[in-house]
Nucleic acid binder design. Structure first.
Lengths: 344, 344
DNA sequence: CTGTTAGCGCTTTCAA
DNA sequence: TTGAAAGCGCTAACAG
């Protein structure tokens, strides 16, 4: 019952050597049924619990993986974490969850922690240019997988969403309803998803022959406040957009608040589509149309890749599809809008 | 640059013994300036990174703590986790974050993992009756702190919110506006906060001499769907409540959806107050009045207590105050309501 | 102030 | 199939 029961105690109680006890408990080598039974019994009676640290030290396998997300409080990353964690647990791996807080310095701090803790592998939603400790990881040859985001110049397996497809779905949806001036609220260029979605947007706009007025393009930082600022800027235009596309859920929330503050009704005066589906987006009034990826699947898949790499396999990058979930926020028609704020 | 640089390598390069190298790098004992400089130099040149597992094995101190929350995807717990994690990091402790998923079996699984990993201490938002591995923890004498919730019969320091005060604030607020029939959407009796809030509600109702009709009391499970079910039940009453009090944010969201589904307008036909402030509650339409606790402070305080206990101190339980944040959802007056659905 | 020497709890040869 | 023994990388006496 005491927590400090050691393998030696178990061996003594079972009347075998520590070697045998180890072999029985790890089940790797052959052991006699008699020994097996007595060791097992002794272990239970004593309430033996293996010391994972000693085992890791000796066997150079910690059975722990690090997961570094950009922001735990962002529901999208919480879902990724959940998916990854459950997958790891199923293979009896422990997940060390860390939060970079959208801050490159903290990202480096935690990568350092991971390395010091000698985790068996790392999953990261990276940010920045990939200087600093990200390079150290590569040199340390720790199994690494990128999730949601990537960093140029790193040959690392990744699990990402099909951003181009997602943007195209959104733009096509809006174009179908007659919108030609779509205001874009993008992410920071320092993050791969920010870049990918922007260039996809430009392509989609061209493909559908919509207005490519540069004044319709803004960029935020994937936080709520920046969505408000961007929306304000877009709506202040002398020819404001009739629809908004936000590259991230939190910025979409900020934009919704700003639009409302200006007395405009989303879904009626202005159409809005957001990236990332969040459980409660359907509860907003009006419910938000989104381009959704399955965050949990992103996390689970990333963990699966990582475990593959850890076990000596090779992992191929995976791109998961996105899908459009049309809800009321995008039901506004451009004509409608024009009538409401003719030239604001 | 290689990840497998060992202390021995550093010592060799610096021309000192491993003992001295260890002393310099851990900074615990006195060392000569000369040795210090050369060891430090050697460590940097070699890219030495301490092996935390070996250190933990030898010194019986892992510098890792376990944090077990009931549901990572609940923003409330995400905030707690964030607060705890940042506090731990400041004292250079690593946080192992685990997710019980509101499931007692998974709670036990992770407690087991924590014990096996030999963490220095554990923070948990517990559930259930405290059988199973929770008892094992006590016997293992691992420093333990409860956060948000407690379990009867455990003499463990805790950081909780002042539930009684919170409920009283909410009830007083609604009573002030003339409401006498408040429908209560409570949590599960298996969780301490569920029990505490319910009994506080009954007391507040009595204190303000409001209607104590038992049909006004319902219970959910702290998940969204149950809030909808509970609201449906309350509104189906032949004398429906004119105000709703939800003991948890997710259930509140469910209730909002259900109320809206029935064609009633929150803030006009029906007042609503919810527990737990969530960043986006202000963005719902109408914005939700809440009884808020500072989740981040809960987490940070819990971690502070835990670190105290780990360092041999004694920790006193802390009860943090709640505060009412009045917003539009609670502006409905009872007369108003009666007019809208006279006897539904 | 520093080198030497035992281990921490476990796995893994190597013989028997 | 098993015991004995040698470490994994580090810290903590103990002498000097």
């Amino acid at each position: 019952m005491d927590a400090t029961v050691t393998l030696k105690d178990v061996a003594a109680r079972a009347g075998v050597s520590v070697g045998t006890a180890s072999r029985v408990l790890s089940g790797h080598s052959a052991t006699s049924p008699a020994a097996r039974e007595r060791v097992r019994a002794a272990a239970t009676e004593l309430g033996y619990r293996m010391n994972a640290r000693a085992q890791a030290l000796r066997s150079a396998r910690s059975h722990a993986v690090g997961l570094l997300v950009s922001d735990v409080r962002n529901p999208f990353f919480a879902d990724i974490a959940h998916g990854a964690e459950q997958t790891a647990l199923a293979s009896s791996y422990v997940t060390l969850l860390a939060n970079a807080n959208e801050d490159t310095a903290q990202q480096d701090t935690y990568l350092d922690v991971f390395l010091t803790q000698r985790v068996d592998g790392i999953i990261i939603a990276p940010q920045g240019e990939g200087r600093g400790d990200l390079r150290a990881l590569e040199q340390a040859r720790v199994p690494l997988v990128f999730v949601d985001r990537t960093v140029d110049g790193f040959d690392v397996p990744s699990v990402t969403a099909d951003n181009a497809q997602g943007v195209e779905l959104a733009v096509a949806h809006l174009a179908e309803q007659g919108h030609t001036r779509i205001g874009y609220i993008g992410g920071p260029p320092s993050v791969s998803t920010g870049r990918a979605r922007l260039s996809a947007f430009l392509e989609s706009i061209a493909r559908h022959e919509l207005d490519d007025d540069p004044a319709l393009i803004t960029a935020g930082d994937f936080r709520r406040a920046s969505g408000g600022t961007a929306a304000a800027k877009l709506l202040a235009n002398h020819r404001p957009p009739t629809a908004l596309l936000a590259a991230d859920s939190l910025m979409a929330v900020g934009a919704v608040a700003e639009v409302r503050r200006r007395g405009l009704r989303i879904g009626e005066d202005l159409a809005l589509v957001a990236f990332d589906d969040i459980e409660w987006f359907g509860e907003l009034d009006p419910p938000l149309t989104v381009v959704a990826h399955d965050a949990r699947a992103l996390g689970a898949t990333a963990m699966r890749l990582l475990l593959d790499v850890i076990n000596g396999g090779t992992a191929e990058s995976v791109v998961l599809p996105m899908r459009l979930i049309p809800r009321r926020s995008s039901s506004a028609r451009p004509t409608h809008t024009a009538a409401v704020h003719p030239s604001v």
